[in-house]
Amino acid sequence: MRCNHKCRVWFDSSNTGQRCSNNTTTIMNEPMSSPEETKLRTLLREARPSAELPPRFQENVWRRIERADESATFASRASWLDALAAWILRPQLAFALAAVLVLAGLVLGWNSGERSARSEAQARYLSAVAPNTLH
């Protein structure tokens, strides 16, 4: 079947037949080209401008890729910090964290105080029974 709007492309018969099959570029209704047409096509193909690459094109491309990578890393770091800040600002978590820190401080402080108190008590006993005059 031919497309109605003269795009010279066959309908895709497998695809419910409602639209043009734009994927295919094969012009099906044309007969095999004549030698003139072939010549013309070759000429057209050759006439197509092939833009010259600017100087240091490849280097610049790599640089842009690297910059893009860097900004992606930076963005991911920023998003990580945002997530952490949001996590900290949750009231339940903030209170739980504060409670854990206070508890840890109390336990550590108690242990340290007990150790120093014990060592003071030992020093007091020793100074009573083994005075420094012996040393």
Partner: peptide, 18 residues
């Protein structure tokens, strides 16, 4: 918070134990 609770517990313990 950690430092304050540590110091408070340490001093309290030292005062009461000794």
């Amino acid at each position: 918070l950690l430092a304050t609770s540590f110091l408070v517990a340490q001093r309290w313990c030292a005062r009461h134990v000794t």
